[in-house]
Computed example of a mutant assay.
Amino acid sequence: MKIKQVVLRQLKMELLYPFVTSFGTEYDRDFILVEAISDDGISGWAECVAMVDPFYNEETVKTCWHILEDHLIPIILQNEIEHPDEVSEKLFSHIRGNYMAKSALEGAIWDLYAKKQNTSLASLLGGTKKKIDVGVSIGIKDSMDSTIEVIASRLAEGYKRFKLKIKPGWDIELIDKVRKAYPDIPLMADANSAYTLRDIDRLKALDDYNLMMIEQPLAYHDIIDHAELQSRLRTPICLDESIHSFEDARKAIKLGSCKIINIKIGRVGGLTEASKIHDLSQEHGIPLWCGGMLESGIGRAHNIAITSLPNFTLPGDTAASSLYWAEDIIEPEVTVENGTITVPDAPGIGYEPNLEKIEKYMTHSKTY
Rank of each mutant, 00 (worst) to 15 (best):
Leu16Asn: 11
Tyr17Val: 07
Thr25Glu: 15
Asp39Thr: 07
Ala46Asn: 05
Pro54Thr: 01
Trp65Thr: 04
Ile67Met: 10
Leu68Phe: 08
Ile75Gly: 00
Glu80Lys: 00
Glu82Ile: 03
Glu82Gly: 04
Glu86Ser: 08
Ser88Met: 07
Ser93His: 01
Ile95Leu: 15
Ser103Lys: 03
Ala104Val: 03
Glu106Met: 10
Leu112Ser: 02
Tyr113Cys: 08
Thr119Tyr: 09
Asp133Ala: 14
Asp133Arg: 13
Val136Asn: 07
Ser137Lys: 02
Ile140Tyr: 14
Asp142Phe: 04
Ser143Gln: 10
Thr147Arg: 05
Arg161Asp: 05
Lys167Ala: 13
Pro168Tyr: 12
Arg179Gln: 05
Lys180Ile: 13
Pro183Phe: 10
Asp184Ser: 08
Ala194Phe: 05
Ala194Ser: 14
Ile200Asp: 07
Leu203Phe: 11
Tyr209His: 14
Tyr209Thr: 04
Met212Leu: 15
Leu218Ile: 14
Ile224Glu: 08
Ser231Asp: 09
Arg232Glu: 11
Pro236His: 03
Ile237Lys: 01
Cys238Arg: 05
Leu239Pro: 05
Val268Glu: 00
Thr272Arg: 09
Lys276Gln: 08
His278Gly: 04
Gln282Ser: 14
Glu283Ile: 12
Leu288Pro: 10
Gly291Lys: 08
Gly291Leu: 11
Gly292Ser: 11
Leu294Arg: 11
Glu295Met: 09
Ser308Ile: 07
Phe312Met: 12
Phe312Trp: 11
Tyr324Lys: 15
Ala326Pro: 00
Ala326Cys: 01
Glu331Met: 11
Glu331Pro: 00
Val334Thr: 12
Val336Lys: 02
Gly348Ile: 06
Ile349His: 04
Gly350Glu: 05
Tyr368Gly: 03
